[in-house]
């Protein structure tokens, strides 16, 4: 009897291991090769002198010295990053997203869904196409869509936003995309407020603003704080639209920190210096990820499964 049990136990343990390898193995393998390994590689690379030849000759702290003492352009790019992130986040990704969520939930359902779909359009269309549309909008000659409106409707002189106000262009371009994610999340948060609270407030004579302030905002506190961290992080690291619309220029005027690291590595071939710059972003990323992780509903996520038969 005991021998039977032991054999059964061994067979079960073997099956457990086999299941682990079958179900989780592929995911673990991919994540180890292309997610964890790059972090370690970057950490190592930051202390080398790898350049265009992709060869490592010495281990050095030079990258960090350069960052802290010699690189004046880095400081400028930090300033650009701060303006870019704060403006995009403050105006579009949180405030305007909230406005869109509030207004699209207040009109008839089908129309609200239509306008939300319109605002999701930029997010769903390929980045190269979206950037191209912006180039056509801010085209400095009279063909540009913006100049058409400025000249023919408002009677103003044609503007060259891309050269004269490049930061404004990238803030708008990123904001039009950024607003949609917050809009979706705030909308579902508003939808999950029990309907009877609105009826009760209206019966008590509350106006639209009072309802927003006392019923909607309390329900949105958690999503807003989550979105703020999430979007700060994603604005901090994403440079796709900037690269496509202004290329970081004119000169270095719209080169945010993440784009700066990218340009150093892939334009100037200073891979080690790029890696050292990325290391800062990686550290910020880990810290912010841990912060967001605390905001998630951990108990429900980690609830132990109910079937334990292998």
């Amino acid at each position: 009897m005991t021998i039977e049990n032991a054999r059964f136990g061994r067979a079960q343990a073997r099956r457990q291991r086999a299941n682990f390898a079958l179900f989780l193995g592929p995911a673990l393998l991919l994540l180890a090769c292309f997610f964890l390994a790059p972090v370690i590689v970057d950490l190592g690379l930051a202390f080398t002198d790898m350049d265009r030849t992709l060869a490592v000759t010495t281990l050095t702290l030079d990258n960090f010295q350069r960052m802290t003492t010699r690189d004046t352009r880095l400081l400028a790019s930090l300033g650009v990053t701060a303006i870019f992130v704060l403006c995009t986040l403050g105006i579009f990704n949180v405030t305007f997203a909230l406005l869109l969520a509030l207004t699209t939930t207040a009109v008839p359902r089908a129309l609200g869904a239509f306008f939300r779909a319109v605002w999701l359009l930029p997010r769903m269309s390929p980045s190269v196409v979206y950037a191209l549309l912006w180039l056509w909008v801010v085209d400095p000659n009279e063909r540009g869509l913006l100049n058409q409106v400025l000249v023919h409707v408002l009677g103003m002189a044609p503007a060259d936003l891309r050269n004269n106000h490049p930061l404004l262009v990238i803030i708008l371009a990123n904001g039009f995309i950024g607003a949609s994610l917050g809009m979706i999340i705030f909308t579902s948060a508003i939808r999950s407020i029990p309907e009877h609270l609105f009826h009760a407030a209206r019966a008590d004579g509350a106006g639209a603003l009072a309802i927003v302030r006392h019923i909607v905002f309390p329900a949105l506190r958690w999503p807003i704080s989550y979105m703020t961290i999430h979007q700060t992080l994603s604005l901090l690291v994403s440079f796709e639209y900037i690269l496509l619309i202004t290329g970081g220029g004119p000169f270095f005027d719209t080169t945010v920190f993440s784009l700066y690291a990218y340009r150093r590595a892939f334009e100037n071939g200073q891979y080690a210096y790029g890696a050292a710059l990325s290391l800062i972003l990686i550290v910020i990323g880990v810290v912010a990820a841990l912060g967001m992780w605390r905001l998630m509903d951990m108990r429900r996520l980690l609830q132990t499964p109910r079937i334990e038969v292998h």
Partner: peptide, 18 residues
């Protein structure tokens, strides 16, 4: 969950090398 929140764009240089 940390990996999900982590911005993978920052890893583009080491991924290129790998």
């Amino acid at each position: 969950l940390v990996l999900h929140a982590f911005p993978a764009m920052t890893l583009i240089i080491p991924l290129f090398l790998i």
